[in-house]
Design a protein around this nucleic acid. Structure first.
Lengths: 174, 174
DNA sequence: GCCGAAGCTGCGAAATCCGCAGGCTTCGAT
DNA sequence: ATCGAAGCCTGCGGATTTCGCAGCTTCGGC
């Protein structure tokens, strides 16, 4: 019977028709876009023609897809550095416990320039936040004067970084 | 006395003569390279000529500097994505306590594909590791079968991500 | 059937990238 | 003091890439 072919076709149709995931507003990514992202995870400046050759698309098509991925916020092409070499000598992860509105505290942390990373978690901390500072004084100031000063912050625990062993950006490249 | 002037001169000389920091192997960065990095943190594909105009250098000079920064491993230009949109639905930070050689454990974690981020810390954990997985089963497998199986791992504590609030790559751009 | 949206291709013009030769300065050695 | 090597910059021409646009096809709605 031809039901298999029909199912395959309808799946293709869904892929191309609906660019959005039903659960949230995140756009849907097909295999080709994923392959393009992989290429750019290896080298953010790789030419469109080279990417096209790798994923089986014309240069113009790759260009349009990349532009859309950037516009949609699915990916960004940026330079990433080791903070130490750029003059930030103290980093720490801070575990935070909150009473009341966790998301409000998370938003407040998000607004701080020294806070690089904020995530709400399940477990013995409500929030984990990564702090990037120039020196010890700066770090102390951020943790004690700014974070702990937030109303609703019940307690914090700090983990000062001693040595960064790994930091990759290769999701999807494995 | 002139000891201050002498010290100042010798420091200048060290900066320009020796591209490496004495403490570790990290190369020294001058203000211009920092400015170039800032440009590329805003847009990893910005043309060299535009960067040159912004930092006061010729196109060729910018190109040479960027190439050197990449070769030295000071920065990398890559596409970064939201893991959720590329199909990784479970993430967690894992705090680890170790008996014996902490760095050996950290190295073992570094070799795992699902481990995105490894840092040795001071505080109540010896190591923090970020895990990126496709689903709960995958996450469970990595934590229980792979991480806790490492000899020397005394205990672990997991923080499953509920919501990622902030993730920037803008060191130096503030 | 007809129309609009979305996505891909091909192509020519403009912009960018790239390699290289040459100039300038610093620094160490003779 | 002079010389040579090294490091870094500029300028330039050719190769490559990017960019905008017109046209084609598919698919779903009316």
């Amino acid at each position: 019977m031809h039901s298999e072919a029909v199912a395959s076709r309808s799946a293709e149709h869904r892929d191309s028709r609906d660019p959005r995931d039903s659960r949230n507003g995140t756009p849907h990514l097909d295999a080709v876009s994923l392959a393009i992202i992989e290429q750019l995870q290896q080298d953010g400046r790789r030419p469109y023609a080279a990417i096209g050759k790798a994923v089986g698309l014309s240069e113009a098509a790759v260009r349009q897809r990349v532009q859309k991925l950037l516009d949609q916020g699915v990916m960004q092409i940026v330079a990433v550095t080791d903070p130490l070499t750029v003059g930030f000598r103290r980093q720490a992860m801070v575990g935070i416990n909150v009473e009341g509105d966790v998301e409000a505290i998370a938003d407040a942390l998000t607004d701080m320039a020294e806070v690089e990373y904020v995530v709400m978690t399940a477990g013995s901390f409500d929030i984990l936040a990564e702090i990037v500072c120039e020196d010890d004084d700066h770090l102390l100031d951020v943790i004690n004067k700014r974070i702990r000063a937030q109303p609703g912050v019940r307690s914090t625990e700090s983990f000062v970084y001693l040595k960064l062993k790994k930091q990759t950006y290769m999701w999807g490249t494995r």
